[in-house]
Amino acid sequence: MNIFRLTGDLSHLAAIIILLLKIWKSRSCAGISGKSQVLFALVFTTRYLDLLTSFISLYNTTMKVIYIGCSYATVYLIYMKLKATYDGNHDTFRVEFLIVPVGGLAFLVNHDFSPLEILWTFSIYLESVAILPQLFMISKTGEAETITTHYLFFLGLYRALYLINWIWRFYFEGFFDMIAIVAGVVQTILYCDFFYLYVTKVLKGKKLSLPA
C-alpha cells in the first residue's frame, strides 16, 4: 500500500458517497445516468467475487463491501425509490455496445482462462468505459449540476492516482499488471475532456454547461 493507492481508493469512495448523498438529500436523481450506475454495480459484482474465495486484508474486504453496498443502494434509489425523478429520456446510451465487445475481449485477453479471472477481466474492461452513458447524457442535455461534476472529478481522480500507484509499484515492487494498466489509461483518458471543463469552469464558480 502506497500513498497514491490509498488516496486513489479514498477518492473513489468519496465519489461514490458524494453521488449517493446527493441523490438521497435532494430526493432526486435528475441528471444522473442510471445506466452508468448499473454498469458500476456490475463492475463491482464481477470483480469482487474473490470476497468468497480469498482474504487479502480487513481493509480490502471492508472497502469492497462498501463499494458494492453503495453501488446497489444508488441503483435502488434511481430505479425504485426515486424512479419518478429519473431522467430516462436523456439516458439513451446503448449499453449493449459496451457490454458485448467488453465481454468478448475479456474472453480473448486475460491472465488466466478461468471463470473468476474472466469475470475479473470483464470488470476491469467494463469499468474503463462504464462512465460513457453519464458523459453521453451530459453532452445531450448540455449541462451538469455542480455536485455531479464533483462526483465525476473524484471518479476520474481515482484512476489517475492508480496510474501513479502502478508506476510506483513497478519501480519499487516489480509489480506489473498489463490488463489493469491499459484499461486504467483508457479510463483516465476518457475523463481528460471533463477534467479540462472542471478546472476551467466549475472551480471558477461557474456551472458546467456545454456550448449548444
Binding site: 474473490d50 469492497k64 489493469a180
Partner: peptide, 10 residues
Amino acid sequence: AEGEVLHDEL
C-alpha cells in the same frame, strides 16, 4: 489454487 491470480487492488 494453482494458477489462480490474486488481485490485491480494488
